[in-house]
């Protein structure tokens, strides 16, 4: 498929608990398990899920801030998992990250200008003049006055700091930005400003986003495609509108139903899903959602459901709602191609 920017194949990350010095079998946290997706140029892929579902680990794996246990991350066809440190540095130019916390993600000892131009100075020497011009340019791009470049992070509001975080990510002119809960810490009115900024930047510069969030309202607003994660696995990946209009996986359904809607006339009938997310150290057998799932059948307790492509281009991992082709006889496209349908 043309314009495929990022391709993630069977990405897995297990964190060992403790060192395992004496006992041979160390319990592991299965943070990310067999995750595959791709992102095309200019599109926004959202990853949603609740805490502990592995969505932030995916972001860190993409940036290779942590080493994957298995799988591949291909940027323009280059697998970054195999890169040496200096080769990895070059790949950073293609992909940048915006962090969740606008307070701790900016070094309090550096000025705004120093912070946002640093990525460029990692690759080339800038004269004082060039640096100032670059800082002014970046600040303007994120809707701030160039005069602010000499201020320290503590002098900015939360929203302005997040703009600085975005400016820093834009400095290397990447084609993909990973935004890990980038608007979650902000107030609603500020959140709207930042979402608008991201949308504008996408239009102007053709940026692609991997937008990680727990907020379904935001995801629905900004996403082209959405991947829903539960306990380290993708359970459903679908075009945004289709996913919200017609969720297939019972967990997606529960998640959408659980989000509070600012409409007092809507009457909530039932609590969408009981129970809590199980521990990723000892996940349930079979489908990890089965203990909370109203539709669970015996098979769900034994067998991990594969991601099955559906007719409308989505993939779903559910034995009940999306039985694999051989049992249902439903016609399906090849899994690999429909994964990337935008």
């Amino acid at each position: 498929m043309n314009g495929q920017l990022l391709k993630v194949e069977n990405l897995t990350k297990h964190y060992p608990l403790g060192t395992g010095f004496l006992n041979k079998t160390v319990p592991v946290v299965r943070a990310v398990e067999d995750v595959s997706f791709s992102v095309e140029a200019g599109e926004t892929l959202c990853i949603v899920g609740e805490s502990g579902c592995g969505k932030s680990t995916v972001a860190r794996l993409l940036m290779r801030l942590v080493e994957p246990t298995g799988g591949r991350v291909l940027i323009d066809g280059t697998d970054i998992a195999g890169l040496k440190t200096h080769e990895l540095r070059a790949s950073r130019r293609r992909m940048q990250m915006v962090f969740q916390d606008p307070y701790s993600s900016l070094n309090p000892r550096l000025t705004a200008g120093q912070i946002i131009t640093e990525p460029v100075e990692n690759f080339e020497r800038l004269s004082r003049k060039q640096r100032q011009a670059l800082a002014a340019d970046l600040l303007r791009k994120v809707g701030m006055r160039p005069g602010m470049m000499h201020r320290f992070p503590s002098e900015f509001s939360g929203g302005q700091r997040q703009r600085l975080g975005i400016a820093r990510a834009l400095a290397l002119q990447p084609s993909l930005i990973i935004a890990d809960e980038a608007v979650s810490a902000l107030d609603v009115s500020v959140q709207a400003q930042i979402l608008n900024l991201l949308l504008d930047l996408q239009q102007e510069m053709g940026l692609a986003f991997v937008f990680i969030s727990h907020d379904l309202g935001v995801v629905e607003h900004i996403g082209h495609r959405v991947a829903v994660m539960y306990l380290g696995r993708i359970v459903e990946l679908a075009p945004c509108e289709a996913l919200f209009a017609n969720p297939v996986h019972p967990y997606t359904e529960a998640l959408i139903a659980a989000a509070p809607v600012p409409d007092p006339t809507r009457v909530r009938l039932e609590v969408p899903v009981e129970g809590e997310v199980p521990s990723p150290v000892n996940p349930p057998s079979g489908c990890a959602f089965h203990p909370r799932c109203p539709l669970a059948v015996d098979r769900c307790r034994i067998e991990v459901p594969p991601l099955v492509p559906m007719a409308d281009g989505r993939v779903v991992a559910c034995h009940v709602r999306a039985p694999a082709a051989d049992t249902s006889g439903r016609p399906v496209a090849a899994a690999s191609s429909s994964l990337t349908v935008g």
Partner: peptide
């Protein structure tokens, strides 16, 4: 009014600019 409008809402369409409250507190 501004607060309500700045919350993303599917009834007002996706991918569009949200009405923001300009300025800061």
């Amino acid at each position: 009014q501004g607060l309500m409008r700045s919350v993303p809402d599917r009834r007002h369409g996706r991918q569009r600019r949200l009405p923001e409250i300009p300025g800061i507190v």
